[in-house]
Amino acid sequence: MIDGFLVALGFLTRIPVPSRVFADPAGRARSLAWYPMVGALIGMLLFAMAWLLPQGRPLLSAAVLLCAWVFLTGALHLDGLADSADAWVGGMGDRARTLEIMKDPRSGPAGVTVVVLVLLLKFAAMASLSQWSLLWLAPLVARMSLTMAFLCTPYVRSGGMGSGLADAPRAACAAMLCAGAACCVLTGWFGVIALACSGIVFVLWRRACMRRLGGITGDTAGALTEINEAVVLIAISLMS
């Protein structure tokens, strides 16, 4: 059980874990259920940092927190966002070409532009957030949508980083239900709105991926996470 958590933690963050856990296929399969917990951990670490930062300087605090957020996750999902943007624009509606562009490690103008815009939206939303205690909602809900994506969407790359993650669906579903309940119980309507916004983003992005690719890849999953975080941050900032 603990190996699944360590795999999820090591994959989704830069927090060091024993390398042996990645060699266990069972731990990899169980890791999907721990994605929401890792999202909650990221959120609580960001909240703790926000609490330590000087009050009354929202722009500075938002900039520091955003840098910490990117460092903590290793820009993993930002890379997927950039690759997805380049592939969606350059693929011209063609599935094979879209998948080919995603393999290119270089980032084109579309990828760079989208990453900058998403980071700008996150920065502005955090600078406008009046309650730092709500910050944990964004990474948690975004990784809930990541779990859902692997559970209910075909993975189109055989042997890719996301293959085999949905081999323990019951545990993953239970984890999502617990995480969703925690959001609503602990934050009330903020949690409800965050889940609703995340659900809308998930449905729209899944539909786009199914139409273009017939499923998801690791890059499109990363893009889903980043877009979800930005939308949830904007929603709770407007509410607060």
Rank of each mutant, 00 (worst) to 15 (best):
V118L: 03
Q55P: 14
L45R: 15
A8V: 00
V141T: 09
M92Q: 14
V185F: 04
T147N: 04
A142I: 09
R20S: 11
F190V: 02
T113H: 15
I216C: 12
G90L: 12
S158W: 05
D3C: 03
T147L: 04
Q131E: 07
L66Q: 01
L146A: 13
F47R: 15
L137T: 10
S158C: 03
G27L: 00
L117I: 09
P169C: 06
R106Q: 10
V21P: 09
A96V: 05
A182Q: 07
F123A: 12
L81V: 13
G162S: 13
S133M: 05
M92G: 10
A168V: 02
R206S: 03
L186A: 15
A181T: 14
L53R: 15
A138R: 06
L195V: 04
A68I: 00
S237V: 12
S133R: 07
A196P: 04
L195Q: 05
G93C: 11
F11Q: 07
Y35D: 04
M44K: 14
C178W: 14
G164L: 14
L137D: 06
A33C: 12
T153G: 05
K122N: 06
A142T: 11
S130P: 11
M1W: 08
G39M: 05
A221W: 00
P154L: 02
V203S: 00
A85P: 13
M148D: 12
L120A: 08
A168F: 07
G199C: 02
G159K: 00
L140D: 02
L46F: 04
M37N: 05
T153V: 12
F202H: 03
L65D: 00
S145I: 01
L32K: 09
A142N: 05
L151M: 10
L233Q: 06
D86L: 09
L99P: 03
S163A: 12
D3V: 05
I101S: 11
W189E: 00
A235R: 07
G91V: 01
D83A: 10
V231E: 01
G180E: 04
V141P: 06
T220A: 01
A125S: 08
L195F: 03
F123C: 11
L32T: 11
G108T: 00
S240C: 08
F47S: 06
A125E: 03
A175Q: 01
I227W: 00
A23L: 15
D104F: 04
D86Q: 11
G191R: 06
M239I: 12
A40Q: 10
A149K: 02
G27E: 00
G4T: 07
A196W: 12
W132Y: 15
G180L: 03
I227N: 00
W34A: 06
H77R: 02
I42C: 13
L186T: 07
T113W: 14
D94E: 09
T220N: 00
F190M: 02
G10F: 05
D94V: 10
L177Q: 01
I234L: 15
R170D: 14
G90D: 13
A166C: 03
V192S: 13
A40W: 14
T13P: 00
I15M: 09
C152G: 13
R20F: 12
G91Y: 01
G191F: 03
S240I: 01
A127F: 03
T187W: 10
G74A: 02
G222P: 05
